[in-house]
Design a protein around this nucleic acid. Structure first.
Lengths: 172, 172
DNA sequence: CATTACTTTCAGTATATTCTGAAAGTAGGA
DNA sequence: TCCTACTTTCAGAATATACTGAAAGTAATG
């Protein structure tokens, strides 16, 4: 039986919870767990350390690490004298949020806009009542999604302090 | 071979696209398709009409319709003289967005907060450097997630016009 | 160039999710 | 009460997604 410390316990809870959470965000569980693990590490870690800690195979670790690098949520670090790669997570919460916002915009909002634009355009000259209703619905949706995307983009460009001010006004 | 109209084509594109999109949002494809189908219908539809149009089984249609009712994205309508239920979607884009925002907050932000709170609390009295770093990270994350949740909640309570004004300031 | 220390790939397997369809359940109307 | 028109359930099948581990690939080092 392994002895556990309060820190280990809390960290394990975070890793497990973040993994579950990730699933409902369309992010795979292992990827979220690796992210959580690196996020709570005080030093860069190797693939083997990650495999060992999360009890996952090399292939699984490798692929999900690459995904996280692709999202720029983690980056690879080369230690002098060491041949292998180490990985560390971005720790700044605001930067993480901006990265995720941008990535989701690119992967979800932009494709959605393409579809809505196409649906709106295809029906813009039709005269019957049903077509007009459809066209109006698509146009409204497109405008809304487009606005949301632009707002997200702007927010991700703005300094954290400014966003906090606006947010504070809303909440109060 | 069935002849198609431009409206049918556009509508099919929307249904298919919305379905794919839904997947990346952690919403199942059929549920998103049913929603898209009802969103672009000018009248309430029965389970059988939905089954027929999307070529899905009764069980599948039934379950996903119930889910959508649970999300309050669609509602059941009783037609006089008819024994069966009909369903119609909320058409107002802003209302749809608020509903989704509230639901996701409840399902994702709140559970996340529980975890972060627990992790932060468990480590608040620990004195070693690693524990302090962990505690600080959890606390930052918690504060950020909490703020986001409250902002989302407020936004969903505010009139659309006010939000549009704030959004406009940001984008320009 | 051969060895070593890694990284990458991928076919096969395991798991999780979604879907089907038939059977059981329910309630209005005769 | 029974019939009929519908709704609900759920075991098993189909599909999609994620994971393993071993083999192949790559490049630094001596």
């Amino acid at each position: 039986m392994e002895a556990t410390t309060p820190l280990q316990d809390a960290r394990d809870e975070f890793i497990a919870g973040w993994g579950t959470l990730g699933s409902s965000w369309g992010i795979n569980r292992t990827m979220a767990q690796i992210h959580a693990f690196l996020l709570t590490s005080t030093r860069p870690l190797s693939t083997d350390e990650i495999m060992e800690a999360l009890q996952i195979s090399r292939g699984n670790a490798h692929g999900n690490i690459r995904e996280l690098v692709g999202w720029t949520l983690i980056r690879s670090v080369i230690k002098k004298g060491e041949r292998k790669e180490f990985f560390e997570a971005e720790k700044d919460v605001w930067k993480i949020a901006c990265t995720i916002a941008r990535e989701r915009k690119r992967r979800e909002i932009e494709p959605a806009l393409e579809i809505l634009k196409s649906c709106s355009d295809q029906t813009k000259d039709l005269k019957d009542k049903e077509s007009k209703a459809f066209h109006a619905q698509m146009t409204e949706l497109r405008d809304f999604v487009s606005l949301s995307g632009r707002a997200l983009e702007s927010a991700a460009k703005t300094e954290q302090s400014k966003i906090l001010k606006v947010a504070a006004r809303f909440i109060s």
